[in-house]
C-alpha cells in the first residue's frame, strides 16, 4: 500500500512516501497505526506526539475506517489553508 506524507509529518518522517505490504490482520486505520508504530520508531514518535489526520483515496476518514480497498493513504497534520 502506498502511504504519502505532507508538511510537518513529512519532515519528521523524512520521506514523501513509503510502500508497505500490510499483513492480513491490518484491516482498519487503527490496525495500520498500531502496525506502523511497531514497524518503525519514527512512526511511533509521530503517532504518539503529534496531531495528524488520515485520508484514504483523498477522503478524510476515522480510525475505524476499513482500508482493505484503499489504494493510497495520506497522513498529514491538521490543515491550515485559506
Amino acid at each position: 500500500m502506498k502511504i504519502i506524507f505532507f508538511a510537518k509529518i513529512r519532515e519528521i518522517i523524512g520521506k514523501e512516501e513509503e510502500n508497505i505490504a500490510f499483513p492480513e490482520n491490518v484491516r482498519t486505520v487503527n490496525d495500520m497505526l498500531s502496525f506502523l508504530k511497531e514497524y518503525n520508531k519514527i512512526y511511533y514518535n509521530v503517532f504518539e506526539n503529534y496531531d495528524f489526520l488520515i485520508a484514504c483515496d483523498e477522503e478524510l476518514v476515522d480510525m475505524d475506517y476499513n482500508i482493505s480497498k484503499t489504494k493510497e493513504i495520506a497522513i498529514f497534520p491538521p490543515v491550515t489553508g485559506g
Partner: peptide, 21 residues
C-alpha cells in the same frame, strides 16, 4: 479552513515554523 489539505510554513529571518491550526 478545516477540510482542504493546504499547510502554511512561515520563514522568518530567524527560523521556519509550521503554522498550527
Amino acid at each position: 479552513k478545516i477540510n482542504a489539505p493546504f499547510w502554511k510554513k512561515e520563514h522568518t529571518n530567524k527560523k521556519s515554523y509550521w503554522v498550527e491550526q
